[in-house]
């Protein structure tokens, strides 16, 4: 027994040598949460880090986060200097760190949209006008999501002229777009709002039974995901650093890297592009 105990201790000590981490104050750190497929985050984004490191000539590190609010916090606390934010989280972050700039967005993000999806038992079908969904049960995605929460809630309030809590029989937050699809498909909620890209790729992957759940409405286009860089990076990493990062991001054309986000390419962006998101967030009371 004693020998066994010693053996365990020895193994533990040896193994501990393999686990090491080091961070550096001069490391340029970024974070990103893709809107679909969050598996193998580090493995995938460390490749992006490697690309940035090669192009920028500074040490680049990726840190994985769990939620948009965690990404905003990390950005605000200068734990990350660059972040791939959703529309809403980007606006929140730039408001908290004045001088921060949106420098690039996904090509698709210039005209993003959300789908409203419904279980077949509701009898609702695709229409161009806002569907009659009052007093149904409804699920958003994650609380901080632009496509799963902010924009759908805005259009609901516009058309039904009520807060979701009053307009629906039950309101839920599934926490994730693929959950929203699964829950509406299972009938747990009658209607839901989902990121159109997640829907399209789940459809392509054969994960959706269109006899059970279908798209009934799509929102008008709005801007969504973008790269935001923190104010003060020029002081920390040298004059013109922000512009350099912008150029490097816009030039990222390796399909494997782009697939992690997943976007077809990155295009120019500006803080002004996201004014609509800020206005909507203020209107529904998510930002004061």
């Amino acid at each position: 027994m004693k020998a066994l105990t010693k053996l365990i201790a020895l193994c533990a000590l040896t193994l501990s040598l393999f686990v090491s981490n080091n961070a550096n104050a001069t490391t340029f750190t970024f974070t990103a949460i893709p809107d679909e497929d969050e598996s193998q985050l580090r493995t995938r984004f460390e490749k992006v880090a490697l690309y940035l490191e090669k192009e920028l000539g500074v040490e680049v590190k990726y840190i994985p986060v769990k939620s948009y609010s965690a990404a905003v916090t990390a950005f605000r606390n200068n734990q990350v200097q660059l972040a791939w934010f959703g529309g809403l989280s980007g606006v929140q972050a730039r408001k908290l760190v004045p001088g921060s700039k949106a420098i690039a967005q996904g090509y698709e993000d210039q005209f993003f949209k959300s789908y409203f999806i419904a279980h077949y038992s509701t009898g609702l079908a695709m229409s161009d006008s806002f569907p009659d969904i009052s007093q149904k049960t409804f699920t958003f995605g994650s609380k901080g999501s632009t496509s799963g929460r902010l924009m759908p809630q805005y259009y609901i309030e516009q058309h039904l002229e009520k807060k979701p809590q009053q307009a629906f029989k039950r309101v839920g937050f599934s926490g994730d777009h693929s959950r929203t699809i699964a829950q509406v498909q299972a009938g747990a909620y009658q209607v839901g709002a989902v990121n159109y890209k997640v829907w399209e790729s789940a459809l392509a992957a054969g994960k959706i039974d269109t006899n059970k759940v279908k798209v009934i409405w799509e929102t008008p286009a709005y801007p969504d995901y973008q790269w935001t860089i923190r104010s003060g990076v020029n002081a920390q990493f040298g004059e013109g650093f922000a512009d350099k990062v912008q150029a490097v991001l816009l030039n990222m054309n390796n399909p494997e890297l782009l697939k992690s986000f997943p976007r077809s390419s990155f295009v120019n962006a500006d803080n002004k592009d996201f004014e609509p998101v800020l206005t909507v967030a203020k209107k529904i009371g998510l930002i004061d």
């Binding site: 969050e38 598996s39 985050l41 939620s67 926490g175 693929s178 699964a182």
Partner: peptide
């Protein structure tokens, strides 16, 4: 881990939330 600490829960939450039940 559910809120972002690098423990088993981090991956567990992601796996269940995204429907990767094998993981």
């Amino acid at each position: 881990g559910f809120i972002g600490m690098p423990t088993l829960g981090f991956y567990m939450e992601t796996a269940f939330r995204q429907g990767n039940y094998n993981e």
